[in-house]
Amino acid sequence: MKIRLNIGAISEPLQSEQFKTGDWGTEWSFVDREKCTACRVCEQFCPDGCIEVKEIEGKEVAVVDHNYCKGCGVCASVCRYGAIKMELKELFKVDVC
């Protein structure tokens, strides 16, 4: 079957949702819900818009969407409360000789 190609790579809105960029990086960000103050700084700085402050179990905290997190580490470096840690993905925990 022939695919349909939009000439000029013209794209309609929200197509980027289909591009799950979560497998790009070697690390992911994780939020420590105890330390998080819901200040939303990370939300502003995440270049992929994939960290969002939401209410979880009655507390507002930052939540990372690992479907899209590229592991750039920006959120971890801007969080003034040390609430975000970058962790190596299981896949990359290998011994290199």
Binding site: L5, A9, S11
Partner: peptide
């Protein structure tokens, strides 16, 4: 009718 031109194209396209 918003569109974007010259979008990202991964290796499959």
């Amino acid at each position: 009718k918003p569109v974007a031109f010259g979008c990202y194209a991964p290796p499959h396209i």
